[in-house]
Amino acid sequence: MTAIYMTEPGTCLKVKHHYFQVFHQNKLCLQVHSSQVSKITLFGNCHLQPNAASLAQSLAIPVLFLDNQGNYLGRLQLESLHPAKYFPQQIKRAQNPNFPKTIAESIVRAYLHNCGIVLLRLSANHSTPKAEIAMEMLDLLIDDLPMADSIHALREYSTTAASLYYQAITELLAKAFNFQCTCRPHSHSINSVLRLGNALLNHTIYGFVQSAGLNPNFGNLHFYCQDELSLIEDFAVEFRPFLVDELVANLAISQILTPDDFTRPSQQDAISLYPATLKKFIKHWEEKLQTEVTHLYAGKLSYRRCLAWQVQEYIAYLLGDVEFYRPMLLKWDTDTAISPVSNQPTEQRILVKV
Rank of each mutant, 00 (worst) to 15 (best):
A3L: 14
I4Q: 11
I4Y: 15
M6Y: 03
G10R: 08
L13I: 12
L13T: 08
H18V: 01
Y19C: 06
K27H: 11
C29P: 01
H33Y: 11
Q36A: 12
P50H: 11
A53L: 09
A56L: 11
A56M: 13
Q57V: 03
Q57S: 12
S58Q: 15
L64C: 14
F65M: 13
Q69I: 01
N71L: 12
L73S: 02
S80P: 04
H82K: 11
Q89H: 14
I91T: 07
A94D: 13
P100R: 09
T102W: 01
G116E: 02
R121Y: 01
R121C: 00
A131V: 02
A131Q: 13
I133K: 08
M135W: 01
L140M: 07
L140I: 03
L141A: 09
L141I: 03
L141D: 10
D143Y: 09
D143Q: 10
P146F: 09
D149M: 04
S150F: 07
I151M: 06
S158H: 13
S158G: 08
Y165I: 03
Y165H: 05
Y166E: 08
A168L: 06
T170Y: 01
L173M: 11
F177G: 02
N178C: 07
N178D: 14
F179V: 01
T182G: 01
H186G: 02
H186K: 08
S187I: 07
S187V: 05
S189E: 15
N191Y: 11
N198M: 07
G207K: 14
N220H: 15
H222L: 09
D227A: 08
E228P: 00
L229M: 14
I232D: 11
I232M: 11
E233R: 13
A236C: 07
F239S: 03
R240P: 00
P241G: 04
E246S: 03
V248P: 01
A249C: 13
L251C: 05
I253C: 02
S254W: 01
Q255Y: 04
T258N: 02
T263A: 10
P265K: 08
D269F: 04
K280P: 04
H284V: 03
W285H: 08
K288G: 00
K288R: 15
Q290P: 00
V293K: 04
H295P: 06
L301T: 08
L301F: 10
S302M: 13
S302G: 02
C306R: 04
L307F: 11
A316H: 15
A316V: 04
Y317K: 02
L318R: 10
L318D: 10
L319T: 12
V322S: 13
E323T: 05
M328T: 02
L330N: 03
L330I: 03
S339Y: 13
T346A: 12
E347F: 11
E347M: 12
V352F: 13
K353E: 15
